[in-house]
């Protein structure tokens, strides 16, 4: 796969193709699989993503510690907020739903990771429903998301233990923003700006889960990450360009991650995990998990 989004964007613009078509063609060559076969695997991923959204919105799941669950339904049913019953609140609910399923040992697509698995389905399926976009376009968008994630994996990292949450929900938000920008008719260049405009807002984000579990704040970081992706999409499609090239934004995310103190990289040694309440809850709930009847 490409190691530079600038290269992919240049190839796409030069050939008059979308980034997804450009990425699928290269993936087909790299892996010796047909484009149809790769799209088949992405179709299955989309089905699992939709299944997780639906399962989470039923609202009855609880995580191992009992700290998360049921919040997706609260957002979906609410009419109290300024954005209630809009695309925005629907996307938040979907992101929470997938992560609640993940925390309860349900089936999800790690895209790019399990901890950041809520953002991409939330943004893509939420927008597809809102705009009446068909599955084929959503599958293409998943290919674009995969391209963006592959470049991030190559140049920076997709692991909270290596790069903090900016490498998980931050990367997921960048992937979702770029993918959705293409799905809504943006040019390859606009896709690049959507990734930059979104990821600039997640730089420095630490990975600080209570007790080291993929629960709190991970579930909510997927919701706020989705909100940042919507902001990036809105700005890029309005024609805003971001002065720092997208590959450099990704590079600097990697650099910040490498320089991040180990306490902020999934070790539960800092951030929310190390607050007095974070420590107390982690201790109580981990004991509870150990002694709970199966």
């Amino acid at each position: 796969m490409y190691k530079s989004l600038a290269d992919a964007i240049r190839d796409a613009e030069a050939s008059g193709r979308t980034l997804s078509a450009t990425a699928l063609a290269l993936e087909s060559k790299d892996q010796g699989r047909t484009v149809e076969d790769i799209r088949g695997a992405l179709r299955r991923a989309l089905e699992v993503m939709r299944g997780a959204v639906e399962r989470g919105l039923e609202g009855d799941l609880r995580s191992a510690s009992g700290l998360v669950g049921g919040d997706a339904l609260l957002v979906a049913r609410s009419s109290a907020g300024p954005m209630s019953n809009t695309l925005f609140s629907d996307v938040l609910a979907r992101a929470l739903a997938v992560q609640e399923v993940n925390a309860a040992m349900g089936v999800i697509v790690a895209a790019p990771t399990a901890g950041g698995a809520g953002v991409l389905p939330a943004v893509l399926t939420g927008l597809a429903r809102n705009r009446g976009i068909g599955d084929e376009a959503v599958i293409d968008a998943l290919a674009t998301a995969g391209l963006i994630g592959a470049v991030v994996a190559e140049r920076a990292s997709l692991s909270g233990a290596e790069g903090g949450c900016q490498a998980e929900t931050g990367a997921a938000a960048g992937m979702a923003a770029g993918a959705a920008t293409e799905m809504l008719g943006g040019t390859p260049t606009q896709v690049g700006h959507a990734v930059s405009l979104t990821m600039q807002g997640t730089l420095g984000l630490v990975c600080d889960p209570l007790g080291g579990l993929v629960e709190l704040p991970c579930v909510f970081r997927n919701a706020t990450g989705s909100a940042l992706a919507l902001a990036g999409i809105e700005m890029a499609l309005a024609g805003i360009t971001f002065a720092i090239p997208v590959d450099e934004v990704i590079d600097v995310m990697g650099e910040i991650g490498r320089n991040m103190d180990v306490r902020y990289r999934e070790t539960a040694g800092g951030g929310l995990a190390a607050t007095p309440t974070g420590r107390r809850l982690a201790k109580e709930r981990l004991v509870q998990i150990r002694t709970a009847p199966r």
Partner: peptide, 12 residues
Amino acid sequence: LLDIIGPVMVGP
């Protein structure tokens, strides 16, 4: 691409 959009797995 499919390393990034996947695997399909039981969480978390």
